Computed example of a mutant assay.
Amino acid sequence: MFVSPPGEHGDRLHKCPAQVRQHVLDLPALGAPLDQAGSARYPLVALDDIAWFARHMFDHWQSWGARDLAVIGDSLTGEEIAAAFARVTGTPSRYAPMPYDELRAAVPGFSHDYAAMFRFFADRDLYARDRDIALLRRLHPGLLTFEDWLHRTGWTG
């Protein structure tokens, strides 16, 4: 996605093609190549939640053994992300689909990895198919949704 907290990626935005900057600067807009139809879901997880699960697994290593734990906090479409942002921040926003060609132009050098990642998300809803959200919430009742994360961090784009 090309909407980031100030200071994280803003310094690179000026290097993006004009079409990509429009997706970002015709704001607030979430510019991401999720899919043109808007039905793909983007898996989201807060860094604090990743840290919580890592700590939990280290603290209970005997019961985890060689097993892994697939973590996710939320899974939203581009429209849902923009709507949640608007609800929490009070700032109207929209989802602006970003064609893969624009992604490749915006992120030269490793755009093929980004494009493959977003195509994977478009083809597979990780939240519904590959994650046991009930288990994750039993283990960590404070697992954040995207809206929870927005409230907690106070992020406004």
Score class of each variant (00 low, 15 high):
28 P>T: 09
17 P>K: 03
6 P>L: 06
132 D>H: 08
115 A>M: 09
57 M>Y: 07
128 A>D: 14
95 Y>D: 08
9 H>T: 02
154 G>R: 04
25 L>K: 01
102 E>F: 01
28 P>F: 07
12 R>D: 08
104 R>Y: 00
30 L>V: 15
3 V>P: 00
68 D>C: 05
100 Y>I: 06
72 I>D: 01
46 A>K: 06
75 S>Q: 03
147 E>D: 12
114 Y>Q: 07
46 A>T: 04
153 T>I: 00
10 G>F: 01
95 Y>R: 08
41 R>Q: 11
47 L>C: 12
11 D>N: 07
147 E>F: 03
48 D>H: 12
55 R>A: 13
51 A>P: 03
152 R>L: 05
155 W>P: 00
17 P>H: 01
29 A>R: 13
91 T>N: 13
42 Y>I: 04
13 L>T: 03
41 R>S: 06
100 Y>N: 09
47 L>P: 01
20 V>W: 03
24 V>W: 04
27 L>H: 09
54 A>H: 14
41 R>W: 06
133 I>P: 02
127 Y>R: 15
110 F>H: 05
29 A>D: 05
82 A>L: 15
113 D>N: 08
126 L>I: 14
52 W>M: 04
151 H>F: 06
57 M>D: 03
17 P>W: 01
86 A>R: 11
15 K>A: 11
118 F>Q: 06
73 G>Y: 01
96 A>I: 01
115 A>L: 02
4 S>V: 06
98 M>I: 04
54 A>R: 07
47 L>A: 15
47 L>E: 07
77 T>Y: 11
95 Y>V: 07
114 Y>T: 00
16 C>Q: 06
81 I>Q: 13
87 R>K: 15
140 H>P: 05
87 R>L: 11
150 L>E: 03
105 A>S: 08
70 A>R: 14
76 L>C: 11
132 D>F: 09
139 L>Y: 09
10 G>Y: 01
149 W>S: 03
80 E>P: 08
110 F>K: 02
13 L>D: 08
96 A>F: 11
128 A>P: 03
10 G>E: 13
80 E>K: 12
62 Q>F: 04
75 S>I: 02
136 L>C: 03
117 M>H: 05
66 A>S: 13
36 Q>I: 12
121 F>Y: 15
58 F>Y: 09
155 W>V: 01
142 G>T: 00
125 D>V: 07
18 A>F: 00
111 S>C: 03
44 L>E: 03
98 M>H: 02
62 Q>N: 09
97 P>D: 12
99 P>H: 05
43 P>W: 10
149 W>R: 02
155 W>Q: 02
35 D>R: 10
39 S>H: 14
94 R>T: 13
49 D>K: 08
80 E>W: 09
46 A>N: 10
54 A>D: 11
144 L>W: 08
108 P>E: 04
85 F>E: 06
24 V>N: 05
49 D>Y: 10
61 W>V: 08
67 R>Q: 11
107 V>G: 00
